[in-house]
């Protein structure tokens, strides 16, 4: 239990929508793996990149929310039917927009996000270059 729960708890006390749980048990595939380990690995990898729609910023792979469970069941079913992870993601993005994926696609909106690290490295090198003097063979090294 840590700060994130504290905040979740504080927000839950004030936030308006009341999240109640249904009386039905979770879907079988929400908490059970697919028989085929390769397909399960595919599904697992995809689930880690999908956002739980009703949680405080968790992926569906590690949320106890009912809806996250139903989304896991949906993902496993579709993967078991032979769909590709990319198709499943597309199906969900069609419905919920980019909000549902934690792996934002490269677009005009996300370009700064993906380009910033490169920009920072360039700017850093520029700054660092000023700190380096000309190579001077007369300088002797010193032990710490």
């Amino acid at each position: 239990m840590r700060l994130r729960h504290l905040i979740a708890a504080l927000l839950a006390m004030i936030a308006v929508p009341v999240l109640a749980d249904s009386a039905l048990p979770p879907a079988e595939l929400a908490y059970s793996q697919l028989k085929d380990p390769a397909k399960e690995a595919e599904a697992r990898k995809l689930m880690e990149t999908l956002r739980c729609l009703v949680c405080q910023g968790q992926s569906i792979a590690d949320s106890d929310a009912e809806m996250a469970g139903d989304m896991r069941a949906l993902v496993r079913e579709k993967i078991a039917e032979g769909q590709q992870p990319a198709e499943v993601r597309k199906w969900l993005v069609e419905r919920y927009g980019d909000y549902v994926t934690y792996d934002p696609p490269f677009s005009w909106l996300t370009a700064p996000l993906w380009l910033l690290p490169l920009l920072l490295i360039a700017a850093g090198l520029l700054i660092a270059r000023r700190s380096f003097g000309k190579s001077d063979p007369t300088i002797e090294g010193e032990e710490a």
Partner: peptide
């Protein structure tokens, strides 16, 4: 630090442009 900073705050910027964006572990 820059990566963590922009990744944490970018959803806020996207929202101001009317877009819902989620940035998480994969990024």
């Amino acid at each position: 630090l820059g990566i963590v900073f922009i990744g944490t705050l970018y959803p806020l910027l996207a929202q101001a442009m009317g877009q819902q964006l989620s940035i998480g572990a994969p990024f």
